[in-house]
C-alpha cells in the first residue's frame, strides 16, 4: 500500500444532524424511563387482589382530558415555532403550562380527598404511581417555563428550536405515561 498523506481522500467526520442525534438520545431516554413506569405499573397488577377503591371518576376523567389538551397546545407551540409563528408559540407554551398546573392541582385534590391511606396496598400503588408521574409533570412544567423565558427573550426560530421540541417531546411522553396509568388506576377493576 503506497497511500501517503498527499494522496489521501479527505473525508468529513461523521457529523449527523445534531438535532437528530439529540432526538434519538431523547427517545432512548424515554425508552429507559418507560421501563421504570412499566415496573410500577406491573407492581400494581402483581400485588394480587387489590381492588381499586373509590376514586373520584369525574375528577379523573377531567384531569385526563386536561392533560391530553395540554399535549395539543404543546404540539401547537412546537409546530408554530417551526414555522416562525412566534406569537402562537408563546401562547401555546403558556397554555401548556397552565393546563399542566391544572392537572397537578387536580392530582393534589385527588390526593387530599382520597378515602384510602397510603399505608394500604391500593393506596401504596395509587400514591406512588401518581406521585412518580406528577414529579415528571412538575419537572416538565419547570422545563417549559425555562423554554418560555428564552422564547420571550427572542431566542428560537424555525432553524433553531431544539430546546422547545425537546421539552415538548418530554411533555408528550409524560402524557403517554398517563394514557396507561389512567385506566390502570381508575378504570380497571377486579383484574
Amino acid at each position: 500500500m503506497a497511500a501517503t498523506a498527499t494522496s489521501l481522500p479527505i473525508a468529513e467526520h461523521a457529523h449527523p444532524d445534531p438535532v437528530h442525534l439529540k432526538r434519538v438520545g431523547l427517545w432512548l431516554f424515554f425508552f429507559s424511563e418507560s421501563i421504570l413506569f412499566g415496573l410500577f405499573l406491573s407492581a400494581r397488577f402483581f400485588l394480587e387482589g387489590i381492588e381499586a377503591e373509590h376514586l373520584d371518576q369525574a375528577l379523573g376523567l377531567g384531569i385526563t382530558i386536561v392533560l391530553l389538551l395540554s399535549s395539543v397546545t404543546a404540539y401547537t407551540a412546537e409546530t408554530a415555532i417551526e414555522h416562525d409563528r412566534r406569537g402562537i408559540a408563546i401562547w401555546g407554551l403558556i397554555g401548556t403550562i397552565l393546563l399542566g398546573l391544572v392537572f397537578a392541582a387536580g392530582v393534589g385534590v385527588e390526593w387530599s380527598t382520597a378515602e384510602f391511606s397510603r399505608h394500604e396496598a391500593f393506596g401504596t400503588v395509587f400514591f406512588s404511581m401518581t406521585g412518580l408521574h406528577a414529579s415528571h409533570v412538575v419537572s416538565g412544567i419547570v422545563l417549559l417555563v425555562l423554554a418560555l423565558i428564552q422564547l420571550l427573550r427572542g431566542r428560537f426560530n424555525s432553524k433553531d428550536h431544539w430546546p422547545i421540541s425537546g421539552v415538548v417531546m418530554y411533555w408528550h411522553f409524560v402524557d403517554v405515561v398517563w394514557v396507561f396509568y389512567y385506566p390502570a388506576l381508575y378504570l380497571v377493576q377486579g383484574v
Binding site: 429507559s32 424511563e33 421501563i35 421504570l36 415496573l39 410500577f40 407492581a43 402483581f46 400485588l47 394480587e48 387482589g49 387489590i50 397510603r118 399505608h119 394500604e120 396496598a121 391500593f122 393506596g123 401504596t124 400514591f127 406512588s128 412518580l132
Partner: peptide, 29 residues
C-alpha cells in the same frame, strides 16, 4: 437498570412514607 432504581425507590417509599409495597400485613408482597 431502571429495575434496580424502581426496586430501591419502592423500598425508599416504604421507608419514608410508610407505604406497603412489601408489607404483607397491609397487602404488599
Amino acid at each position: 437498570t431502571q429495575g434496580f432504581a424502581a426496586a430501591l425507590l419502592m423500598v425508599l417509599l416504604d421507608r419514608a412514607f410508610g407505604m406497603s409495597f412489601f408489607n404483607a400485613e397491609a397487602g404488599g408482597d
